[in-house]
Structures are given as structure tokens and as C-alpha cells.
Design a protein around this nucleic acid. Structure first.
Lengths: 182, 182
DNA sequence: CCCCTTTTTGCAACTAGTTGCATAAAGCGG
DNA sequence: CCGCTTTATGCAACTAGTTGCAAAAAGGGG
């Protein structure tokens, strides 16, 4: 149950409306915890009801009108509690690995094209992360907060690097493989 | 929607009962697509109803009695179709990265212990994968199926290697960090 | 000022995954 | 052969996440 905490983090970084949050999730936080706007609106409602955030007082809240939220002390406390609490890593769920395992039984026909496509996707993501690193973390600055955020970004960069290398390795192996289904 | 295909793969490798499947998920397939026994039983029911698998004819099927399943041709065809179909990688969801991002705002107090614990967990998983590699993929053999399965295992090994290194790096950085909450 | 598009918010229904518990048979110790 | 534990199967309820759609306001063009 991490979406509310992702939202609290984002709101602490900067109070925002639902749509602004959605956009920021598409760019930064969402890189490791994605969410759709529907999820976000629903969760904002719950968080407000629970007294962890509140709508910034501006015009009466109605449909089609911006409503920005800020985090209340109770929300900050809950986030601090959650951050410090022990949590097990969630088990990995990777479809491509599953498909390769299946291909070992039913044949590799057709999967190679998608491996190539995934390689391109991961290369694009890697390029995007590198651009963010270049822009937001130039060699000079290293406050504590920036260090932590940079560490997180490095995880993203290194993970994408891993996948591009692994996919390239897989593809290099591939043409030689006879097709068990043939 | 990958659980049914994970089950089809496992059943093609070897026809099994629900409990046997559960055990095999705990060991091999589950390393990259985990499932509980309740999920597995439910899915076996659906797959049977859909005509993709069937119960091996043995004693009348009743509660508390083993019931083994095998894959029917329609099931194999569906698995082949699914394996070859283009699929987007699912967005990453990592709680620890989220927590570090939160820690940049609410303070790092308490999280270090859990980083250490995660490091141990990843080290243990890595050791387990290495043991499997030593046992199941000795240098000599390299049939097509084994090559694919080995490739998948290598992904697991390299991912765990990445995480252990990243966590060690994070922890090495840590003691120097002043606590923003202090 | 009226219509059309865009922006912003949100509900409802569905799918997937998790948790908690129940029930039937089999095996074992006394 | 009676009760206790273990094995095997499964239902039901809940939580989380996704998909499809729609309504209210704002802004722009005629």
C-alpha cells in the first residue's frame, strides 16, 4: 500500500492539484511508482478524509476547478512512520522472463521482434534518465536531499543499463538457437 | 494477465497437482512470477473450464485428494500465441526507492536498518540462484531449452548482484548524511 | 453570446492479487 | 478405533490497480 505515501511525498515536495500531481507522476515519482489520474483523485479523496492532507483554501471546490492540496502534520508523521518501518521487498514480476521460459517449451517463434522492441524502450528510458541526471545533478551540488534523490536516480540508470545489456546479450544468443517447435 | 500462462508453462514442463505447482512456484517459476496456492487453484479451475488443461484421469476428484492436470493442445496453442505477442514491459514499482525519496523529505531516521536487512535478503537470494546455476547448468550442456532457461536465471543473478551492489553503495553513503529532520 | 474544444475532476465497473479461513482425507500415536 | 496433526483443495471477502466513460468549467472563434 504505497500509493498514498507516494502522493504525500510528492505533495510535500510541492503542494499541487490532482492534475499537476498526475503530470509529476508521469515524469519523476512515477518512474518507480506509476499511477493514473483516476487512482490519484481517488487517493486524494481518501487522504483528505483521513485528515492527512487538506485542500488549499481557494475558490469553492467544484468540478472542473483546480483544487490544490497540502500535507498536514498528521500526513507528514504518517509518511515518516511508513518510511522508517521495515518492509519486505515485493516479489519480482517480469513478463519477459516468463515468456522466455515459456519459449523454452513452445518455441521461440515471434518473440525476437519483441525483445528488440523492449531493447529500444529500455534504451530510450536510459537516455531520459541520463538527461535528467545531467540536468538536475551537475557535479557540484550534493546536499543531503539531493544525494538521496541522486541515489534513487542512479538505481534507475543502472537498472536500465542492466536491461539493455541483458537484452543485447539475449539477442546475440538468439539467431543460433534452433526452434524447439519446428 | 500472466498467471495462467505461468501455470501452462509449468504444467508443460511437468503435469502436476495444485500443491505440486505451488511448491514449484516457490522454487523456480515463482522467482519471477510468484503466486499463492489460492491463486493457483482458482486459476486451475478457470483453465480447466476454458478447455486449456484437463485433470489427469485418476480416482474420482474429491477434496483432500490429489488431482493432477495436463495441458491440452488448445492450452499449448494459447501459450505459444501469448509468448509471441508484443507486450509492453510493466512499469516498475519499487517500495525502497520510494521510501528513499520520501526520506529526502521527512528524514532518514530508521531506514538504514531496513536497507541492511534488504541487503541480506538480496545476498541470500543471490546465493540461492548461484547454487541453482551450479547444480542445473554445469559448463558442458547447452541445448536450446537449457540455453533459454539459463538466460533467464542469469537475469535473476545479475539483478540480485545489481541490488546488493546498489544497497552497499547506498549504505556506504549513508552515515555521512545529516538528517534533514533533525 | 453560443457552440466547440480543452482542461480538470471524478464515478463505476472490472481485473488481478492477497488474506483469512474452511473442509475433506490420510497418516500416526496411543 | 479415536483423536491429533499434516496434506491437499478450495471458497469468500478484501485490497489494489486498470479501463472506460462522463460531467463541469474555462477559453477561444465566429
Amino acid at each position: 500500500m504505497s500509493l498514498p505515501h507516494a502522493i504525500l511525498t510528492a505533495l510535500l515536495e510541492k503542494p499541487s492539484s490532482g492534475l499537476e500531481l498526475t503530470r509529476r507522476f508521469d515524469r519523476s515519482i512515477g518512474y518507480f511508482w506509476s499511477a493514473t489520474h483516476q487512482q490519484i483523485y481517488r487517493e486524494l479523496g481518501k487522504l483528505e478524509e483521513a485528515g492527512l492532507i487538506r485542500a488549499l483554501p481557494a475558490g469553492q471546490p467544484a468540478r472542473g476547478q483546480k483544487k490544490a492540496y497540502e500535507v498536514l502534520p498528521a500526513g507528514r508523521a504518517e509518511l515518516a512512520r511508513w518510511t522508517a518501518a521495515a518492509q519486505d521487498p515485493r516479489p519480482m514480476r517480469d513478463t519477459m522472463l516468463l515468456r522466455l521460459r515459456a519459449a523454452a517449451v513452445v518455441g521461440t517463434e515471434g518473440i525476437e521482434a519483441d525483445l528488440r522492441r523492449h531493447l529500444e524502450l529500455h534504451e530510450a528510458q536510459l537516455a531520459e534518465y541520463r538527461e535528467i541526471e545531467r540536468r538536475d545533478f551537475p557535479p557540484g551540488r550534493d546536499g543531503a536531499e539531493d544525494r538521496l534523490r541522486h541515489l534513487v536516480l542512479r538505481a534507475g540508470i543502472d537498472l536500465e543499463t542492466f536491461w539493455t545489456e541483458w537484452l543485447r546479450h539475449a539477442l546475440a544468443d538468439f539467431p543460433e538457437l534452433p526452434d524447439p517447435a519446428a
